[in-house]
Design a protein around this nucleic acid. Structure first.
Length: 255
DNA sequence: GCGACAG
DNA sequence: ATCTTGTCGC
């Protein structure tokens, strides 16, 4: 039997909206670290990536993953996989309330056990300021953790007047090589993020936006430098390893 | 009624 | 998010 998605309680959504409006005030949209100002990011040694993977028909059980890679080598220095039980449902625009608590716990475990391995910036699967209320999951994790964060979404969210129309498609077609990008501009005129051709091989862009404590230009440049494939290596490793964890500990039901 | 809908 | 094989290319 297929369970229809239950409508999210509107009271909860209102509470979530005010929470986002409150925390939004804490976001820093500029570079706050010396390495971010350096042309080659000198001083940057550790980049983090987080993600959650789910079991096929299970809405509440998931594997929360944190990885820390060396920079610029992009070798895995630390890995943490943890089964968690989600409580909040997925509602577009409120992803953070579903995932952030467990990502924060992973960062706190690292801070406690191996503080010298805490990443200097964290790549988050999802948007940052490129969001209905300019407070996506990358901002949420950034503000609550205090760490610089970058949001990288694989799909375009149509927000604040940004549309995926024929014009958008033509802008994508104009991205010639890895590193090329174009701005995602809100109706207000503010640039909320950038569509980035992350590497030469992928014609489909990723959508980069500021999470916390980093400028958009630095976020886009760093994202490009962290891409071996379309998805930045920190996020890709978190995704690969969390799915591997599920494959080993929760094998698919035998027919 | 139709389309949109990060993960 | 997850469901899914092969196929084309280096």
């Amino acid at each position: 039997m297929t369970q229809m998605p239950s409508p999210p309680p509107e009271e909860l959504v209102k509470q979530w909206e005010s929470e986002q409006k409150r925390l939004r005030q804490e976001v820093l949209e500029e570079d706050t670290e010396d390495w971010q100002r350096s042309p080659d990011f000198a001083g940057l040694e550790r980049v983090g990536g987080v993600d959650l993977s789910f079991i096929k028909g299970d809405e509440v059980n998931a594997c929360a993953q944190l990885v820390v890679l060396s920079y610029p080598d992009l070798k895995v220095l630390y890995e943490d996989s943890r089964m968690v039980t989600l409580t909040a449902p997925y509602v577009s625009g409120f992803l953070a309330f579903r995932e952030t608590p467990f990502l924060l716990e992973a960062l706190q475990r690292l801070e406690t056990s191996q503080p010298t391995l805490v990443p200097q910036v964290v790549f988050v699967d999802g948007n940052g300021l490129f969001h209905y209320r300019e407070f996506g999951v990358a901002c949420h994790l950034g503000v609550l953790s205090g760490l610089p964060c970058v949001g990288v979404a694989k799909n375009l969210l149509q927000v604040q007047g940004v549309l995926k129309d024929e014009e958008h498609q033509s802008q994508i077609a104009a991205l010639q090589k890895g590193g090329d990008s174009f701005p995602l501009t809100a109706a207000s005129g503010k640039v909320l993020g950038k569509a980035l051709r992350s590497c030469d091989k992928s014609s489909k862009p990723v959508y980069v936006s500021v999470g916390h404590r980093i400028s958009l230009d630095a976020a886009v440049r760093l994202t490009h430098l962290c891409c071996r494939y379309r998805v930045p290596e920190p996020i890709r490793q978190a995704d690969v390893r969390s799915r591997e964890y599920l494959r080993i500990h929760f094998p698919a039901p035998d027919t």
